[in-house]
């Protein structure tokens, strides 16, 4: 009953959920001998799509020889996250279909094309940046820091420096100009 009560809660303390994620990252290092990262899965998925369109060209690309496009441990993390978050939001009754996040809408309006366009450009930068730096917020930020990696801690700091600058520009400069 207590456990079920926890599962249906809208949110947990970020400290509790974070501790769980720290332990999960260690479990991944033990059972899969890999850091728990998310951006590798996108490379694998993109490679698989590339193989469907032009197999020869994709197989010739050096990056897909380093990160082989196939369904494996790293690939399955992303479908897993989608299902896990779906389960969590359904259990707590917070699942709901939206196109424009409330905070975005309150400043930039509820135009779906504008929001999806911005998200698309953001996603492209995120994809390029994650592979450029060799990992993302979980791979570098959590798993890398756990392992005392100097490069990971520097990278995670840069994620936030870049993020804070652009978020401030968006909401404190451009957003204020629009109002």
């Amino acid at each position: 009953m207590v456990v079920f009560g926890m599962l249906t809660q809208v949110s947990w303390s970020p400290y509790i959920a974070g501790a769980g994620i720290g332990l999960l990252s260690c479990l991944a290092l033990v059972l899969a001998d890999r850091p728990l990262g998310c951006s590798t899965a996108f490379v694998k998925a993109r490679g698989l799509i590339g193989k469907m369109i032009n197999a020869e060209k994709t197989e010739r690309m050096a990056y897909y020889r380093d990160i082989v496009p196939r369904v494996d441990w790293a690939f399955m993390i992303i479908p897993g996250i989608i299902i896990g978050a779906l389960l969590s939001s359904l259990l707590s009754g917070t699942f709901h279909v939206t196109w424009v996040p409330a905070l975005w809408g309150s400043v930039f309006g509820n135009n779906v094309v504008l929001r999806v366009g911005a998200a698309l450009i953001g996603g492209i930068l995120l994809g390029i940046g994650a592979r450029w730096a060799g990992g993302c917020t979980s791979g570098h930020g959590i798993s890398g820091s756990i392992q005392l990696s100097l490069a990971s801690m520097i990278t995670a700091t840069c994620f936030f420096i870049g993020g804070i600058i652009v978020a401030m520009l968006l909401y404190r400069v451009i957003g204020v100009g629009l109002a």
């Binding site: 998310c38 951006s39 996108f42 993390i77 992303i78 996250i81 989608i82 299902i83 896990g84 978050a85 779906l86 389960l87 969590s88 939001s89 917070t94 699942f95 709901h96 279909v97 939206t98 196109w99 424009v100 996040p101 975005w104 929001r115 999806v116 911005a118 998200a119 450009i121 953001g122 996603g123 492209i124 930068l125 995120l126 994809g127 390029i128 940046g129 994650a130 592979r131 450029w132 730096a133 060799g134 993302c136 917020t137 979980s138 570098h140 520097i154 990278t155 995670a156 700091t157 840069c158 994620f159 936030f160 420096i161 870049g162 993020g163 804070i164 600058i165 652009v166 978020a167 968006l170």
Partner: peptide, 29 residues
Amino acid sequence: GGLIFGAGFALLGYCPGTVAGAVGTGALD
């Protein structure tokens, strides 16, 4: 790479893991 990622992080409002999580909660953006 970290700074390019950061710019995308702010414009999208999700990172590579949480973007998948957001899809699971119904966020179509």
